[in-house]
């Protein structure tokens, strides 16, 4: 990608199978349009998302990482995986800040299987926000 072209962020989305992934499917079924910047990785539960997955993604040059699971408190298919994700992402954001990476690059959302519109809005919003923040500083480092 040349520097002069408009910056198109690359976002990795870890979506839980039962709610958020289904919500993303519904956005499709309803033909809601959102920017093609996100690549989705399906996991069974947001509680499966190891903070190291997010760190690796950032290290490999992702400009943003979305983690999306079932709504709190009781939608989680596995009882409480969403709470575990919540705690981990909160901690991770603190760590990122200390490393000089904008914590806004990592976003945690609760999206139900009927919230296709919310999924589309979150993606749009995140792309806009990351365009404002600019490319992941680690990406340049790797290229160099």
């Amino acid at each position: 990608m040349s520097e002069k072209e408009e910056f198109e962020p690359k976002i990795i989305g870890f979506l839980c199978n039962w709610c958020a992934y289904a919500g993303a499917d519904l956005a499709g079924v309803s033909r809601m349009q959102y920017p093609p910047n996100i690549r989705i990785v399906r996991v069974m539960c947001s509680g499966r998302v190891d903070p190291s997955f997010i760190l690796e993604a950032l290290k490999d040059g992702a400009d943003g990482v979305l983690v999306a699971g079932c709504h709190l408190p009781s939608d989680c298919h596995y009882i409480s995986g969403n709470f575990k994700a919540l705690r981990r992402i909160k901690l991770l954001k603190k760590v990122l800040e200390q490393f000089g990476i904008e914590p806004e690059r990592v976003r945690l959302e609760w999206i139900s299987a009927s919230e296709g519109d919310k999924f589309a809005t979150v993606v749009k919003d995140m792309v806009d926000q990351i365009k404002k923040i600019g490319p992941n500083p680690l990406k340049g480092g790797i290229e160099a």
């Binding site: 956005a27 499709g28 349009q33 959102y34």
Partner: peptide, 11 residues
């Protein structure tokens, strides 16, 4: 998933 999460949302 290149339909629900790709072709349909980037028509």
């Amino acid at each position: 998933n290149i339909r629900d999460q790709c072709s349909w949302v980037h028509i």
